[in-house]
Write a protein that binds this DNA or RNA. Structure first.
Lengths: 160, 160
DNA sequence: TGTCATTGAGTGCATATACACCTTTTTGAT
DNA sequence: ATCAAAAAGGTGTATATGCACTCAATGACA
C-alpha cells in the first residue's frame, strides 16, 4: 500500500523540495565551493588561498590606496568580513593598514614590500589555473557567465 | 618624475594584478556572497540559512535516505563540511543520522518530523526569493548560468 | 556652537569550509 | 583464515562569512 510512513506523509513536501535543486543561491554556492578548491591548490605554494589572493590583487590593482569600505565594496564582501580577513594578511606582513590623513576614521589599505613580492610570485600560478579553467569552460561561455554573475550581484542588491 | 616610490617599483605587478578582476573563482565567490545574503534574509523567519535549507531540501528530495558521502557529493560539499553542518540541524532536531543496516560504517541521513515541517514551511519563502531572483536575472539567462555553473563544477574536477 | 544624525570601523557570536590525519569497518586476494 | 587495501566517517586546526551591536570621528544644522 505504501513504501514507508515518511514518504506517504511527506510526499508533497518531498516533491516540492525537488524544485530546490534549481535554487540559484545553492548552485552558485556549490560552484564556488568546487572551483575554490582548484584555485586554493594552485596558490598554496605561495602560502595564499584564493580569497587572500583576491584581496592582495584588489589592493595592488587599485591606484590609490582604497579604504576598508571601498575595498569591501569592490570585493563584494561584508566590511566586517574584510576586517577579519585582513588580520591574517597583516600578520603575515603582506598588507598594512594606514590611517587616512583627512579622516581619522578611515583606514587605507596597502601592500607591504613582501605583499608586492608574494602577489608578483603568485600571479603566474593564478594565470595557470585561470587558463585551465577558461579552457574547460570555453572563453565564450566565460563572457556570459561573467555577465550573469554581475547581474546576479546587482539582483541581490535589488532584492534587498 | 614619479607619483610614488611604490607605484614605480610595483607598477608592472599592479598592472598584472588588474587581470585578476577577471578571476573566475573570485567572481563566482563574490556572486555567492552577495546572493546568499538575500536568500538568508528570506529564510531567516524559519530559523534557517540558505545552506541549511539546501541540505534539508536535498535530504527531503532524495527518495532513499542518502549516506553522508552521497549527500556531500550531491551538494558539492566536502564530506567533513557536511558532517559539521549537520550538527546544527541535528541539534535543532531537524535531521537525524541513522546507521545503515548493511554497512556499519555508513550513516544515512533523514529528516525528522520537525525537519519535514520546517522544510515545508520554508519552501514558500524560498520560492518567493527564487522568483524575485529569476525575475531580476531573466529566466533565459538562468538557463545559461545554470549550465555554465555545472560546467564549472565539472571543470574543477578536471583541473584536480 | 552645541547637538545629533551620519559615516567608518571594530567585536561578539554563530555558522561555513576544507585539508590533514585518524579510527573503524568492509572487501579482496592469497 | 588472514591481512592489507579501500571505503565511510570523524576530529584538529585554520580560515571565511555576515548579522547585531558598539565606539569614535565627522558633518549638518538650528
Amino acid at each position: 500500500m505504501h513504501t514507508s510512513k515518511s514518504s506517504n506523509k511527506n510526499e508533497s513536501t518531498a516533491q516540492a523540495a525537488r524544485e530546490a535543486a534549481e535554487c540559484v543561491c545553492f548552485n552558485v554556492r556549490k560552484a564556488a565551493r568546487l572551483i575554490s578548491q582548484s584555485y586554493d591548490r594552485a596558490l598554496k605554494p605561495h602560502g595564499l588561498n584564493t580569497n587572500q589572493f583576491s584581496i592582495l590583487a584588489l589592493i595592488g590593482a587599485t591606484p590609490d590606496a582604497p579604504s576598508l569600505s571601498e575595498a569591501a565594496k569592490a570585493l563584494g564582501m561584508e566590511r566586517t568580513t574584510l576586517t577579519r580577513n585582513l588580520r591574517h594578511l597583516d600578520k603575515a606582513d603582506l598588507t598594512q593598514t594606514l590611517v587616512d590623513g583627512q579622516d581619522a576614521r578611515t583606514r587605507r589599505l596597502a601592500l607591504t614590500t613582501k605583499g608586492w613580492a608574494v602577489l608578483d610570485a603568485a600571479l603566474p600560478s593564478w594565470r595557470s589555473v585561470q587558463k585551465q579553467t577558461l579552457a574547460e569552460l570555453g572563453s565564450g561561455n566565460w563572457q556570459h557567465l561573467r555577465t550573469n554573475l554581475d547581474h546576479l550581484g546587482q539582483a541581490a542588491a535589488m532584492i534587498g
